[in-house]
């Protein structure tokens, strides 16, 4: 492993460092609050791991640039309006076959709109986007993490009310003394 590749993986080193720090704190610290903080650091390292893997080289944020989005919306909107106009026209002129014709016309124009839209979309694929999914997953995991921390702190409050301390050794001593 060359120095360059070690440096190139710096985000993973950060992840591993945080993971081990958090894990050590959880296992080694006897203070309940410190365990909760350790657990938090441990979970945060996993968030970073996921976000790292979602990043694509030279990729930008996975949001369609406003210019392309506007163009796309305009094109789709325009053709659909044309379709509606044609449908109205056809309905006036050929009342009897209006239904079938209107359907056909609308269908064709809708197809046009779609193919037009996909051409634009094709053009926009030249931009490289990062993968948004891992970040989205982490939003869920962050919520889970907050819930865990909240519950853990609530339990610590109750433990402190009952024992008068948040030190695990002291609590176990008190229990033995019972």
């Amino acid at each position: 492993m060359t120095l360059e590749s070690i440096a190139g993986l710096y985000n993973y080193w950060v992840v591993i460092f945080l993971m081990m720090t958090g894990f050590y704190i959880v296992l080694a610290r006897k203070n309940l609050i410190k365990s909760v903080i350790g657990l938090n650091i441990f979970q945060t390292s996993v968030f970073l791991l996921y976000i790292t893997m979602g990043k694509v080289d030279h990729g930008t944020a996975p949001i369609v640039p406003p210019a392309i989005a506007a163009e796309q919306a305009h094109a789709a909107h325009g053709t659909t309006e044309a379709g509606h106009a044609a449908v109205g026209h056809a309905a006036l002129e050929h009342a009897e076959t209006a239904q079938g014709l209107a359907h056909d016309v609308a269908h064709n124009l809708a197809d046009d709109a779609i193919s037009h839209g996909s051409e634009l979309a094709h053009a926009s694929t030249e931009i490289i986007y990062s993968n948004p999914l891992p970040s989205v997953l982490m939003l869920t995991a962050i919520v889970v993490g907050i819930a865990t921390t909240a519950l853990a702190l609530a339990l610590v409050v109750r433990i402190r009310e009952d024992y008068g301390t948040v030190d695990e050794e002291r609590i176990l001593e008190l229990d033995r003394g019972e």
């Binding site: 959880v26 657990l39 865990t148 339990l155 433990i159 229990d175």
Partner: peptide
């Protein structure tokens, strides 16, 4: 008992890991 929150806390730490 007062040991219940402590047991839950210990389970929470291990379970979350």
């Amino acid at each position: 008992t007062r040991r219940a929150p402590l047991a839950a806390f210990q389970y929470l730490i291990l379970g979350s890991i």
